[in-house]
Every structure is written in structure tokens, then in C-alpha cells.
Simulated scan of single mutants.
Amino acid sequence: MFQAYPKPASVRSPILPRLPRSRCAEHGVKTIVPPWAGKHSRFTLLFEAFAVEVLQACRTVKAAAALLGLSWDAVQTIMDRAVARGLERREATPIKHIGIDAKSFGRGQDSITVLTDLDGSRVLDVAPERTQVAAGSVLATLTVEQRQKVCAVAADMLPAYAQAVATQTPNAERVHDKFHVAKHLGEAVDQVRRAENKALQAEDDDRLKGTRQLWLFT
């Protein structure tokens, strides 16, 4: 185990403790967990806390690994342990307003479902895909009491999300976020503009020609 510091200092302070260990015929070899490091970790908690700050400042794990002078797997493991510690400390406090949204990545080919605490500005859970099962799984991470006390859910306008929200949070009002409302409104306005423009052009009237941007962005 060692305490590592990022470049340019590149200073490593080795810690070589002799941790008490026992060998059991039934449970195998067991060692204690030292107060300065996590179980089976090669890094101190102090360094892992610093690594998490670097991760938060970087766009990718690869970029953080380059700054820390570690492998991608090592940094990913540090992040996984930090998330696990955070989940262990999370208290089942009432959450009045939550959000469920779909996010795309990988050139739009992959999607995830994100559950957020809107009042606390924090991500509560993430699940792959944007389906009713995904929405139900992230909502299920809240306790039954928490789900019953949710007052409103700001959700993507997917029917699958609507079904999950109605099932998991029966006392909550469903709110459409303004982005999707504006998107549907813009599509409706553009559809009417195209129909009107086609009808006017049949009468040699070009007054709506070239006005698409005017209707959509003013």
C-alpha cells in the first residue's frame, strides 16, 4: 500500500504495515481493515479523496487517470468505492420533488435513465436504457415511505416513464419539464407553418417563405 501524489510532484510515500491476519479453515485468510484505507485498497483514504476531486474536475476517467499517473482500472475502482461509501451514508430523508430524465451518450446510440433530487441538486440513481423497467428500478431505490411522500415528479414525456411514475409514486403530480414542452410546441408550430406555406404558395403567395427561424426562435 502506498500514498500516491499526482504529477508534477510524483512523490510516493510507501506505507508498509504488518496488518494482523488470521487463517481459518472455514472462512480462509482474514485481515483487519486499517483506519487509513478501505478494504483491499492499495491507496489511503486521503489519496482516494483527492482522486475523487480530480475525477469531478475531469470530463472522463481516462483524463483523471492521466493526471493521477494511474491506470484506468485503478481510477475506476477508486470511483466505485467512493460511490459505495456515499450510498452507505445516505439517509432515507423525505424527498418532495424528483426528476426522471433520459440521457443519450456514445453518439446518441446508448441511453440511460437518471433519477435526481431536484431540491438537493443530486443524482440519486442511474439505470441503463430508457424504459419502464429502468424508470421503475431507479424509483425502487427510494424507500416506500419516501415514494409516498414525493409531491411532484418532473419527467421526460415518455409513456414508459409515465407508467412507472404512476405506479411507484401514486401521490405525486407529474410535471413535464419545460425543455420537452418547448420542443413539442415548436414542432406543432412548424407543422402548421409548413401547411400554411404550402397552401399560400398554391396561390402564388410567398409571404411565409424563409420564415421558419422567425416562428421557432422568437
Score class of each variant (00 low, 15 high):
M1G: 01
Q3W: 03
P8A: 02
S13M: 14
L16E: 10
P20K: 14
S22R: 13
E26A: 13
H27T: 14
G28V: 11
G28Y: 09
P34G: 04
P35N: 09
A37G: 00
S41K: 01
S41W: 05
R42T: 03
F50D: 02
R59S: 09
T60L: 06
A64S: 08
A65D: 00
A65V: 02
A65T: 09
L67T: 01
L67C: 06
L68F: 01
Q76F: 06
M79W: 11
D80T: 04
A82N: 09
A84R: 09
A84H: 15
E88K: 13
T93Y: 15
I98M: 02
I98A: 00
D101W: 00
A102P: 07
R107Q: 08
Q109R: 09
S111M: 12
S111Q: 12
S111I: 10
L115K: 05
T116P: 05
T116V: 14
G120L: 11
V123P: 10
P128F: 10
A134W: 03
G136E: 12
V138K: 09
L139T: 05
T143M: 07
Q148G: 10
Q148Y: 04
A154T: 15
L158T: 10
P159V: 04
A164N: 03
T169C: 15
P170H: 08
P170E: 13
P170V: 06
N171K: 13
D177A: 01
F179K: 12
L185Y: 03
R193A: 06
R193L: 12
R194W: 07
A195L: 05
A195Q: 11
N197E: 09
A199H: 12
L200Q: 14
L200Y: 07
K209M: 10
Q213R: 15
L214R: 15
L214T: 15
L216Q: 08
L216I: 09
F217M: 05
F217G: 06
